[in-house]
């Protein structure tokens, strides 16, 4: 006795799962999200590459230093001082959370815990939405 039917169904399910990323995208090229920087500033706190890979570490250090040690000044690798504040420093340039932070985070399914405490600066769309309500 072979049970071929059952085995073939099993194999097909397994292979379909394997192929699901291919089938889902169906050969359409996916473009990475474009970020709205929201500023003309050429230089962020640290280098672009560092910010891209390690901004969460920087923010985490800032939080700890501000909250636990009461410091407020950060001097970057080039010697330039910054006020350690998500809302007053970062968000001053990157004003739109939805079009800057969220685009990448949603794309890569990252759930940062910044907004557990911080309130994101109001954006135009949000204001509109609220006034309608």
């Amino acid at each position: 006795m072979y049970d071929k039917g059952k085995i073939i169904i099993g194999v097909i399910i397994f292979l379909a799962l394997l192929l699901s990323p291919f089938l889902y995208q169906l050969g359409k090229p996916v473009t990475a999200p474009t970020l709205v920087l929201g500023t003309k500033e050429k230089q962020c706190v640290e280098s672009l590459a560092f910010m891209k890979s390690s901004h969460m570490v920087l923010l985490d250090t800032w939080r700890d230093e501000v909250v636990r040690e009461g410091k407020s000044l950060y001097v970057n690798s080039a010697g330039k001082p910054y006020n350690m504040s998500l809302q007053n420093t970062c968000m001053k340039c990157h004003t739109t959370k939805t079009q800057f932070c969220d685009r990448c985070h949603d794309y890569l399914d990252v759930a940062p815990n910044c907004w557990d405490c911080h309130i994101a600066p109001k954006e135009k769309e949000q204001q509109v939405a609220r006034s309608v309500k």
Partner: peptide, 10 residues
């Protein structure tokens, strides 16, 4: 040794 996830996903 962190990598840029945007590029990984690209």
């Amino acid at each position: 040794w962190k990598v840029d996830l945007l590029k990984v996903k690209e």
